[in-house]
Design a protein around this nucleic acid. Structure first.
Lengths: 244, 244
DNA sequence: CGAATGTTTGAACCCTTTCAAAGACGGTGG
DNA sequence: CCACCGTCTTTGAAAGGGTTCAAACATTCG
């Protein structure tokens, strides 16, 4: 609360895709230096968000996509009964908000799980730029298609009836995504609570807790609070049914 | 088998988006007559598929998107253990294959559930056309975004822990989509088997069967083989948790 | 008509949920 | 620095719902 005045003064920071370490994962992937500079003129603002702060909420008018620069986000659906369902976790280099393109309003709320920074990508300007830069068009379509696939993979994860398979698949998914960003695939920090994991996987918090205990007892992983160490990546893969 | 020679002779049929009754649902939605004619030059072929025939299979190189002209399709994922998981059903006006854009190969197999016709949309040509027709760019992005949302809705459906909620949500989803195509929202034919419904919803065939029996006993629906009549749309909606 | 496929119904089992309570962690204030 | 408090996590026992296994029935299509 106290920190709001400080945050405001830091809200806008000059961004630069060209010098960003994530540019091979993010929207500028595959662009020439020249085209990246054009993109930089559109993606010219960064925004800081404190842990727990909303990037946007259900129903907000859609104006921009957001690339995660640093930090961690969750997106959630609000059911008619007040129930919250987490539909995705987003880490640096991933782009938020593409589901809103088709309806002009955000369908899901997005909240920072830790202090984070996003790059604003005003969509009207991006659309214009896509018409001008053919390779941006190509890469943007791949990005959207990748989001379609991420959704389908999550669905396949939820199709595993056994709770164990879901959690194993979840850990492996995190592992892969961390690895793609140059972090260890076997040792990482969970940014979300047990409850958020359970919600995401369609399981209760108690089941998540029991599973972590069991996996640890079996020596597959070590879990200390939010710190996860995977001891046997191969055996963990063997536990997952039909998801990758 | 015997019919293959016949099918081949009918395989290619001249298509026309301008005169297609689905053009407000499909790729040409919102295009001017002039732009639709340009699109017609690209979408110039139709393909007939017999029931049970594959449109494409996992691993096939990605070359075209396919708009369903008539009939019904399912898309399925093949798990490492040989398990099949149905990830989507597609009806006329819906576009197949957008998940493959990001990886250049089809990630899922697609099979006709009944004799069907699709319109070929060669993707390289579509990409070119998108660079030329701004409103096509706009509508194509909405189409992809819509596919992202369809996936998320399916995921929300699977999050309902109670089998009853999932089936209710499934019936409502079909109802809406039929209504959008000018068919009755309360009376329609299931194109898929109980097993396929169960697979899609993460339930067993027995559970689906029991649920239909129960819903019928409660007077909510009438089910005769594959013919469904919804008697109480409102009460059915009340059964679904957080999925619209 | 007959075989294959698809559907319905029953009973026992298993896993996750639910309900309950104790324990650990982290931040705040004295 | 430590005690306190709220939040998060762990663990236990009972209950519920869907699956599994089994068998009869219906439908479709050659």
């Amino acid at each position: 609360m106290r920190s709001i005045p400080i945050k405001v003064s830091l809200d806008s920071i000059k961004a630069s895709c060209g010098s960003c370490s994530l540019h091979e994962l993010c929207l500028p992937m595959g662009l020439s230096q020249e085209d990246t500079e054009l993109l930089d003129q559109t993606v010219n603002k960064r925004r800081k968000l404190a842990r727990g702060e909303h990037l946007y909420r259900v129903g907000d008018p859609f104006q921009a996509l957001y690339a995660v620069r640093s930090g961690f986000f969750k997106t959630l659906h609000l059911g008619g009964n007040g129930r919250e369902k987490i539909v995705g976790f987003y880490m640096p280099g991933e782009v938020l908000g593409m589901d809103a393109i088709s309806i002009d309003r955000h369908q899901y709320s997005t909240m920072a799980l830790e202090d984070s920074i996003v790059c604003d990508i005003p969509f009207a300007e991006l659309e214009h730029l896509i018409g001008v830069i053919p390779s941006l068009q190509y890469h943007f379509h791949r990005l959207m298609s990748g989001d379609i696939n991420a959704g389908k993979r999550h669905m396949l994860l939820l199709d595993n009836t056994r709770a164990e398979e879901r959690l194993a698949g979840f850990l492996l998914s995190l592992s892969q995504r961390f690895a793609a960003r140059g972090y260890s695939p076997t040792q990482f920090n969970l940014r979300m609570t047990r409850e958020e994991i359970g919600n995401y996987l369609g399981l209760t918090i108690e089941t998540i807790s029991r599973l972590f205990s069991r996996l640890q007892k079996e020596g597959l992983v070590n879990v200390q609070n939010r710190e996860v160490k995977i001891n046997d990546l191969v055996k963990l893969r063997g536990m997952v049914g039909h998801c990758d």
